[in-house]
Design a protein around this nucleic acid. Structure first.
Lengths: 151, 151
DNA sequence: GTCAGTGCAAAGCTTTTGCAGCGCG
DNA sequence: CGCGCTGCAAAAGCTTTGCACTGAC
């Protein structure tokens, strides 16, 4: 399974760089480093966290560049922006086969991912009903996790 | 129908003030004004918008108070915080009978509300599966609205 | 009379913008 | 060799905090 994930993220990196090229963007070291960083993360991270992670890895990138690159990737649908309600935007690679949603614990702040087929099915019929051309959707649950409830 | 809405919001105001009293909070003019303002709005508004609306109505309230009151109401589950992806928190009265979700147009920024029974049903089974005690949930769709698509 | 509620101003954070210089194509 | 990508620093919001004062109970 670990191999499958690695393969999946390599594909995402390739797809992403291809899409950027097609959209008329030039290659750049800072952007490549950020894309690589995004591919290493399993779940959403804030711009500041990504910036710090790159710095820790010895590949310092300007904060402005982190925001600019994330903006571009979100616009192209290659990265998903996630807001869990604390006023900070988080970002994660938009890998169709790894599509998921998030549940936040109000007590400890933990964020976990989950998937549900019925939920996706219910969402899939909404665009037609609303008359919108939906390109992304996000479901957020908040409550108390099992650990906090036990404590 | 208009009457039903007014009745519903009056109920929400009463429920809210009662809940605050029970939670040990004292009454206050600024808070009452903000609660009234929230009851007048049909959909989510930012703290700044609420602050400006109160000012426009001649009932000036400090910005800090707006944020503090909203925080309290969200914690008590009387107000729902909504994040549509622009980094600004929006707030709306949490009226169970008016429960809904939001769809945002990436082009014109328009925000619309919608409800869907199948969606709610799919969400209702998630808490048991996740082991969380879910107290709130939020669904956000983004895409292009009919008007923008036609243009 | 006590202490929560409130307003103002200052501070804190995340995010954006301006600008000069490097480097891809 | 032009123009986009980057970094740094400054600016721009949104939101929070500190503090003194008012007003509810």
């Amino acid at each position: 399974m670990r191999l499958a994930i690695i393969k999946r993220m390599d594909d995402w990196i390739a797809t992403t760089e291809e899409a950027l090229r097609t959209a008329g963007h030039r290659a750049g070291g800072a952007r490549a480093a950020l894309i690589d960083e995004l591919a290493r993360r399993d779940c959403c991270r804030s711009a500041q966290e990504l910036h710090a992670a790159l710095r820790a890895r010895g590949r310092s990138v300007g904060v402005a560049t982190v925001y600019r690159v994330l903006d571009t990737l979100v616009e192209l649908g290659l990265v998903q922006r996630v807001e869990i309600g604390d006023g900070i935007s988080r970002f994660e690679a938009a890998v169709p086969s790894a599509h998921h949603h998030h549940v936040v614990c109000d007590d400890c702040g933990k964020v976990e991912a989950f998937t549900d087929v019925s939920l996706e099915r219910a969402i899939s019929v909404l665009p037609a009903q609303l008359g919108y051309d939906i390109v992304a959707h996000e479901v957020l649950l908040r409550g108390e996790c099992g650990d906090c409830r036990a404590a």
